[in-house]
């Protein structure tokens, strides 16, 4: 049974060669080689085009992008505070709407976008993003998730993968694993909690090709507040050679540790259905990153088990952690 999805009227990029050539995030930044978060910037700006205003929360995508008064931004961009992603988008959207309604500026569609990191958006700014997703403004929040507070030298966040070594969670002789939190499920949490938000998605900048750009366009086209969570391999924080960024993203998705989906008007559409396509063992993903070098088989098995539960036992596999069907558990 295929669900009936609303038709989103957007300009789809069908082939790589059809992607716009024009760049709105260009030279002038000093992000690391192989930085997938930088690619998220480049792609969302390309997909949204010049009639856009953006704010960026504090983080690598602020500090490494606009160092020493330089800027890679061709579109208008403004810094916002670490936890202010959602509110910055509301402020801009509200301002523009009021000015247009009162005839103070020309009426037109202006894309309002905020990007925040996993710490800024997923931890500190969660309440503000929730506020934004409850509003009736047209806005898009992109939470670019490099799984650490990267800018402050790689500290664990609520979205860091279980077991990872970070500067706040170093393995030691007494405690092998200092990071014992399971990754926070932000996209689904926001979708579940904001039933009038019409579009929530997870994405990777590079896998499948063009997917993130098209999701950006869908989010902007459908109207109202929308949210995209991107999965961004970070060579510095994850400790791997920059040449493998794209591959790691793909492995993360194929292993099922980062589920790729859209929730459109409450309906889940898998971008990569790990149940049908089969999941590769998470080991193949973990073992390529220095941040997991201290894990022993037991730890890898634990992570694998959790991922299996996500896909095999959750009512909405990979998305929502409700189990046991629609029956309410007996007391």
């Amino acid at each position: 049974m295929s669900p009936k999805l609303p038709v989103i009227d957007f300009e789809k990029i069908k082939k790589v060669h059809d992607a716009p050539l024009e760049e709105f995030y260009t030279s002038g930044h000093r992000t690391c080689q192989g930085c997938e978060s930088a690619l998220v910037m480049r792609d969302f700006a390309k997909a949204s085009g010049p009639r856009t205003v953006a704010t960026g929360a504090t983080g690598c995508m602020y500090v490494a992008n606009t160092s020493y008064l330089t800027t890679p931004w061709i579109i208008p961009w403004m810094h916002t505070q670490l936890g202010a992603g959602g509110s910055s988008a509301i402020g801009m959207a509200a301002g523009l709407r009021a000015l247009m309604r009162k005839g103070k500026i020309k009426k037109e569609k202006i894309n309002v976008i905020n990007f925040s990191g996993d710490l800024g958006g997923g931890d500190m700014g969660l309440s503000g993003i929730s506020g934004a997703l409850q509003s009736d403004y047209d806005l898009l929040i992109i939470m670019y998730d490099n799984e650490s507070a990267a800018n402050t030298d790689i500290q664990a966040t609520g979205l860091t993968t279980y077991g990872a070594q970070t500067t706040f969670t170093p393995p030691g002789s007494k405690h092998r694993i200092m990071h014992r939190r399971w990754k926070k499920n932000v996209a689904a949490m926001l979708a579940v909690g904001h039933p009038t938000c019409r579009y929530v998605a997870t994405a990777s900048a590079t896998f499948p090709a063009l997917d993130f750009m098209n999701k950006t366009r869908k989010a902007l086209a459908i109207g109202g507040p929308t949210f995209i969570h991107t999965f961004d391999p970070c060579p510095k924080g994850w400790d791997f050679h920059p040449a493998y960024s794209r591959e790691l993203g793909e492995l993360g998705i194929k292993s099922g540790i980062f589920p790729l989906y859209e929730i459109i008007d409450g309906q889940v559409v898998y971008t990569y259905d790990a149940r049908r396509k089969g999941r590769i063992p998470v080991r193949h993903y973990l073992e390529k990153q220095g941040r997991f070098a201290h894990l022993i088989d037991e730890d890898v098995d634990y992570i694998q088990k959790q991922v299996d539960v996500m896909w095999n036992e959750w009512e909405v596999p990979g998305v929502a952690p409700f189990k046991a069907g629609l029956q309410v558990a007996a007391r």
């Binding site: 910055s88 509301i90 509200a94 000015l99 503000g128």
Partner: peptide, 12 residues
Amino acid sequence: FEIVKHASSVGA
């Protein structure tokens, strides 16, 4: 306060 600040930044 951030809403107010950013509304101001677009000219409102």
